[in-house]
């Protein structure tokens, strides 16, 4: 393992934020894994740290294939992590909306530029990331439909689902989009947590990445074959929005099967406790995403369901 400094952000009042890369193997840039680009992506950082631990052992045992180089960047926005801020700096900028960045741009743009310059040559790019809404997902691999995406490659992670998303103008500034545009096969890997650690889900993510690296001939690692992934278009998910604001009590979790017409949550009045709305499943299927906060506003998304899919 070789530890290298990718970029250093200085601050007059704090210690430098050093973005560290951990390199394994030598040769062609085969796979790069990036963790906490946002300051609340604790689970993502944890997954990367566990990957580094595994890869270190694999390298010691000679299990990184010859001529293959792997890079892991566990934390990008370390300053944000330490003060519990999702975005970077006083400007509150999302580094994952700053790619490919500019070498003479603002601070966030420079961070993105330096990282991207370091990792754009990799054949495979894996980003552990999070959704802008707070909630839990079933673990899945997400790809953007840029024309360069390859869903069958995403299957090789062996996670239950692969989601293909049509990019919006804002997505064009993400790492995933820019990786793909630069001919890296890019995957975003979602586990079920962000700002806390779920050991099972983290282990599943570590295994998925190691499985993928094995199948792409980058490492030698014996693991379970995982799932034959179900491939979904994001637009085909059934979104459940609530019509009342209040206290949200969910009856189902991500991965559970729900039946059409059955109650899946209720919204209670925050003052008097009565049920303001019984949230009814609009279709039968699997819960793909669930709102997890105690409160919910009218119009917020409570669930995303995989229409007519059985367990």
């Amino acid at each position: 393992m070789h530890k290298e400094e990718i970029y250093r952000v200085r601050s007059p009042y704090r210690e430098d934020m050093v973005i560290q890369g951990y390199r394994f193997g030598k040769g062609e840039p085969a796979a790069c894994i990036v963790g906490a680009i946002r300051g609340n992506e604790v689970q993502q950082m944890y997954v990367c740290s566990q990957l580094i631990r595994e890869l270190k052992e694999l390298e010691t045992n000679g299990c990184i294939n010859a001529g293959k180089k792997i890079m892991v960047i566990p934390v990008v926005n370390g300053m944000g992590v330490n003060i519990g801020k999702r975005f970077f700096g006083v400007e509150d900028m999302d580094i994952n909306r700053s790619f490919p960045g500019m070498d003479k741009g603002d601070t966030t743009s420079r961070i993105a530029y330096e990282i991207f310059d370091e990792i754009k040559e990799y054949t495979y790019g894996i980003q552990l990331t999070s959704f802008y809404m707070t909630g839990e997902f079933v673990p899945h691999v997400r790809m953007m439909e840029t024309g360069y995406q390859n869903a069958s490659l995403a299957n090789l992670f062996g996670l239950p689902y692969v989601v293909v998303r049509k990019p919006t103008p804002l997505d064009t500034k993400t790492l995933n989009y820019n990786w793909q545009n630069d001919n890296t096969a890019a995957f975003s890997l979602y586990t079920n947590k962000n700002d806390s650690i779920d050991e099972d889900s983290a282990n599943q993510a570590v295994s998925a990445v190691l499985r993928f690296l094995t199948r792409m001939g980058i490492i030698r690692y014996e693991s379970h074959s995982g799932y034959i992934s179900h491939v979904l278009m994001e637009d085909d998910l059934t979104d459940v929005y609530v019509e009342k604001g209040g206290i949200f009590r969910s009856f189902v979790k991500p991965g559970e099967y729900v039946r059409y017409g059955y109650p899946i949550a209720e919204i209670r009045d925050p003052y008097e406790g009565f049920i303001k709305q019984a949230v009814i499943a609009p279709t039968s299927g699997i819960v793909f995403f669930a709102h997890t906060e105690a409160l919910i506003a009218q119009g917020d998304m409570a669930y995303r369901l995989i229409h007519r899919l059985h367990q």
Partner: peptide, 26 residues
């Protein structure tokens, strides 16, 4: 707050919105 409080998103990056979408999209 420059952005939408709690959501942390810039409203001026959410247009044209979505009539049956999430709260701020509406």
């Amino acid at each position: 707050d420059h952005k939408i409080p709690k959501l942390g998103m810039d409203l001026n990056r959410m247009f044209p919105g979505k009539k049956d979408g999430a709260m701020m999209e509406r």
